Computed example of a mutant assay.
Amino acid sequence: MVVDDQASMRAMIRRALQDFGFKDVRDKADPVEALSAVKSDRVHLIISDYNMPEMDGLQLLEEVRKDPVIGKTVFIMLTGSSDREIVQRAAALGVNNYVVKPFAPAALKEKIERVFGELT
């Protein structure tokens, strides 16, 4: 599940994930909708932007981690900021990895492989 309020970023990440071999890639612009979708139809990976209206990526991460069913879902945070406080808060909430925008698809692949192992 790709969660980002920018359509162009969602499309770029979706294409990259498909190129990496992911078959069922879904996306949502709204983190509240994404949370609901993930609860009703589980996913193996959430890639979420940090800076979004209504609910930011840290709040989404916190909600995912609190849920007994989806709490262990792999979560990678994207952000345009390398603000140390955001990184520390994400780590404290149990983020699996962190990618700073802008990034190349190869960098995203590396972060995913650190969690799942080598992608074929």
Rank of each mutant, 00 (worst) to 15 (best):
A90V: 12
G80P: 01
N97G: 13
R42E: 11
D4F: 10
L108I: 00
D19S: 14
L119P: 07
V25H: 01
Y50T: 04
N51Q: 11
A11T: 04
Y98V: 04
E118C: 05
V95Y: 00
A16Y: 08
R10G: 06
I70D: 01
S36F: 03
V99P: 14
V2P: 15
G80V: 09
P53N: 12
E85D: 15
K111C: 04
A92R: 15
D67V: 03
P53F: 06
I112W: 02
K66F: 02
T73Q: 13
S40Q: 13
M1C: 12
L58V: 04
M12W: 01
R84E: 07
E85S: 14
D19I: 10
E54I: 06
G80I: 10
A104M: 13
D24G: 03
A11K: 13
S40F: 09
G94A: 10
A16L: 05
V64P: 00
S8K: 06
Q18H: 10
L17H: 05
V43G: 03
D27I: 00
G71K: 05
R84H: 12
L61F: 04
V69C: 00
D41H: 14
E113L: 10
S82P: 14
R65L: 02
G94C: 06
Y50I: 13
L35S: 01
D19E: 15
D49E: 08
H44E: 11
K111A: 13
G21N: 07
R65N: 00
K111H: 14
S36P: 00
A106N: 12
R65G: 00
S48V: 09
S36H: 05
V32C: 01
V43H: 07
F116C: 14
I46M: 13
P105D: 06
A106D: 12
E113T: 08
S81V: 08
D24E: 12
T120K: 05
D41Y: 08
S48E: 14
G71D: 12
R15V: 14
P105K: 07
M52C: 09
M52G: 11
K72L: 08
L35K: 01
K23R: 15
K101T: 06
A91C: 09
V87D: 09
N96Y: 11
S36C: 03
S36K: 08
M1V: 08
H44C: 06
I112T: 03
D4P: 12
A90Q: 10
D27V: 00
V115G: 04
N51A: 11
I76F: 02
A7R: 11
L61R: 02
F22P: 14
E54M: 13
V74R: 04
P102S: 01
F75D: 07
Y98S: 05
L108Q: 02
P53A: 06
K101C: 05
R65E: 00
N51S: 13
I70Y: 02
E113Q: 13
D19T: 09
Q6V: 11
R10L: 11
D30N: 15
M77N: 08
F22I: 08
A91W: 09
S82M: 04
D49P: 11
M77Y: 03
L60V: 04
V69E: 15
P31G: 14
I86L: 08
D41M: 13
H44R: 07
A29E: 13
I46A: 14
A37Y: 03
A91M: 12
M52P: 03
S40I: 12
S36Q: 12
T73G: 07
G94H: 02
S36E: 14
K39S: 02
